[in-house]
Simulated scan of single mutants.
Amino acid sequence: MIPVNEPLLDGNEKIYLNECIESGWISSDGAFVERFERAMANYVGRKHAIAVANGSAALDIAAAALQLGPDDEVIIPTHTIISCASAIVRTGARLRLVDSSPDTWNMDVTQIEAAITSRTRAIMPVHTFGLPVDMAPVLALAKKHGIAVIEDAAQAIGQTYDGRQCGSFGDISCFSFYANKHIATGEGGMILCDDDALAARARSLRNLCFKPERRFVHEELGWNYRMSSLQAAVGLAQFEKLDAHIARKRQLGQRYETLLRGVRGLELAPVACPYADNIYWVFGLILDDSLPIDADQARSMLADAGVSARPFFWPMHEQPVFLKQGLFDGEHYPVAERMSRRGLYLPSGLALTEAQQDKAVAAVRNMLATFL
């Protein structure tokens, strides 16, 4: 079975992990956390970087650092991972959803202004699948209405928007270093920002809100969301290979695109948009409506051929956990609904070989031949 993702750990990971073990610094203390934070901040062009336990933790802290609450609303794409929504819902704030753009598979920024109300406190653009959100309209609306931008760049490490690094646009920006990311630490995440007070608040929230002057006296509840030195050691080694990882991802994506271009029954991942070329975090495709199968059935057929595939996100407005709370009743977002039912992505890990890629392509072609 070809895995949907296999990380590449061929840099200084073992050397740095041994340094942690030999020094005894394996918790959140030690030099590697600070070194990893500094490397990411410099790369993205931000003043502050706060390493955390995972990408979901980064979103939780971002929402809490902005002091969102029950009187507030936050605009997010319905087609995203549930971490984005749960971080907002847990603050008591209300979610306002927008649909996806069929051209980029990201949030449709033309729908944002209609979703803004007097209660809107933030917009959360989420860069998905390889292309960035069109940030210029997002930033213009945020400035016009005096609202914050929480930028989720988890899938866009190393991607740029008009030549500027993703993760550099939000009032507060979040990254993930899950095993399938361009920088993989197994788990792990990071918050980036330029505001000193916001950074200090984020650092406090990730560390149980200890008071510097009296450690075990707390005026606010935070989390133990610290990143370990072991994670940071792997992250720093991965960061050192980031340019090579991005080049490899683009090579894999472009090869998939060449091998599957023109195949009937498929809508392939967009190659580019006016402000960026696809970084191919994963290689996604959408099944044509004429096919009598959905993404789940396609994945089952591919699995029978020894190829793992993963579905696209399920929309927030159709999540049972939110429907049970009375959220999004009667709301429909047709582009996201189609993507969730007919979208999947092929094995896209950095360790993928050309032979494995050829096998995945053959499996897709054979599957389609059953119906076309």
Rank of each mutant, 00 (worst) to 15 (best):
E219S: 15
M339I: 15
L323C: 06
H79Y: 15
M316R: 00
D29A: 15
K249S: 12
A142C: 11
A276Q: 02
R38T: 13
R365D: 00
T110W: 05
A31G: 06
I2A: 00
G349E: 03
A351L: 06
G306K: 08
A272S: 15
A62T: 02
R121V: 03
A156Y: 14
T104V: 08
D134Y: 14
D277P: 09
A87H: 08
K144M: 03
A148F: 13
P274V: 07
P125S: 15
G188E: 05
P315V: 05
V234Y: 00
S300E: 13
I183F: 07
A295C: 07
A148H: 10
P274M: 08
V217I: 14
A369M: 08
A336V: 03
P70Y: 15
V263L: 09
E73M: 07
C209D: 15
G92F: 11
Q159C: 14
W281E: 09
C209T: 09
D152H: 02
V307Y: 00
Q297G: 05
T160Y: 06
I61S: 01
E34W: 02
A87R: 08
L17G: 06
G186K: 01
A179G: 03
G253C: 08
Y225W: 11
I279N: 14
A39S: 06
L323T: 10
Q297R: 04
Y275P: 01
D171Y: 03
V263R: 06
I21E: 12
E22T: 13
V361T: 00
C166V: 08
A51W: 15
D108Q: 10
D194C: 02
A31I: 10
I147M: 11
L8C: 12
D134I: 08
V52Q: 00
D289T: 06
I147S: 12
I157L: 15
W223H: 10
T120Y: 10
Q67S: 10
Y280S: 01
G343T: 02
I50H: 01
T78G: 12
G265T: 04
V44T: 11
D103M: 05
G222V: 10
K211L: 14
A247T: 12
R119M: 09
C174T: 09
P315Y: 11
L66S: 05
A148G: 01
R250A: 11
